[in-house]
Nucleic acid binder design. Structure first.
Lengths: 192, 192
DNA sequence: TCCAAAGATAGGAGTTACTTTCACTTCCGG
DNA sequence: CCGGAAGTGAAAGTAACTCCTATCTTTGGA
């Protein structure tokens, strides 16, 4: 990883953290993109080179590229659905349990600001498609539609866990909630 | 239902159908809100009285208020999850199977135009919450979180069905796809 | 070590059409 | 027949996002 790439990554992280603090303090609509750029000390045009929209500053996840490898690893010795569970627990848990305050702020913005919520939902649709393509080859019939359903269920489980985690202000560790969510969703028919 | 209300509803329907045709033909960004207003022969400010945003013209569903009653009815003699399945099949199926061409156009916009997709996803989050509140009292433990998971699963099933329906251009009736989706999601653990 | 090329940033101007506001008119409903 | 809700029209604002060029920084090879 060259200097250029590291610098870029650093700028992304600093911009995101600064912006989220500003959004939480003054409100998403009140904080203008130029304000953020000024605070981070970059030009607005530079900010727009990194983040395509104002919302994406919040939605972007610096650990997004860890899911692919984690899932590929887990697929070696687990069923597809279990592999997703395992990967989610591994990647999400450690991060959210060490960087709790910041992730709570981010979660708050994502659920409270409609336009951010919408942007994040769009993102999730793409994630679902990517997950489906990852696991489809590991299904008995290689059926992409089945894979999409599994991926959707896995995402549903993780968002449910995430919502609860946020609602109870990180009282329980995220890993535990994710496990519970996957368990319950695997046995939906048994719910009364 | 008075004349006023009927007129309003009529304007909404006509506006939506006109707008969707224009969007499909010329592209969402190319068609301006003023163009739509001119075509429907109302003032732009009137259009904005009915639809809060440009995207909402597409996302709005004239049958949205049928779900509540349908679910309440189905809850009388079914488990909560089955009640959702039943209500979805009833309300969705007949509409999409009689109004197919138009609903396909609408579906196409919702999946192709990012901003519309995002708006529709936000809408779905609210729907999930409403469904959860409807079914929670019918669960053994009255647990709202469980209800949210069930509602999420039901919505996931219906979107999966809807996607397939769109992908195969309404080759199979929507009701059948929804049933299949609910079946599969009830037995996720059995998928290999 | 140095240098050329590739790529990133600053800075600023512009544009656009979505959306809001308000005073005014029209017309349904009891 | 009147009160009040809904529609109209015009106008303006807003800030997100785009585009451009000059300037600087990094990179990889000589």
């Amino acid at each position: 990883m060259g200097l250029r790439e590291r610098n870029r990554h650093n700028t992304l992280v600093v911009t995101q953290r600064t912006a989220i603090e500003m959004f939480v303090e003054h409100g998403f609509d009140e904080v203008k993109v130029t304000d953020i750029a000024a605070e981070v000390d970059i030009a607005p045009s530079t900010l727009y080179r990194h983040f395509p929209t104002k919302e994406s500053i919040v939605v972007w996840d610096e650990h997004d590229d860890e899911y692919g490898p984690a899932i590929a690893r887990a697929l070696q010795d687990r069923s597809p659905f279990e592999a997703l569970r395992c990967a989610f627990v591994t990647v999400l848990a450690e991060r959210y349990d060490t960087d709790t305050e910041f992730q709570l702020l981010r979660a708050q913005l994502m659920s409270d600001v409609p336009s951010i919520y919408a942007a994040s939902a769009s993102d999730d649709a793409e994630t679902q498609e990517q997950l489906a393509h990852l696991i489809a080859p590991h299904l008995g019939d290689h059926d992409l539609d089945t894979a999409r359903l599994l991926a959707g269920a896995a995402l549903l489980a993780s968002y449910w866990a995430f919502d609860r985690w946020q609602a109870e202000s990180a009282a329980r560790p995220l890993a535990q909630l994710i496990d519970e969510a996957f368990d319950r969703i695997s046995h939906l028919a048994a719910v009364r």
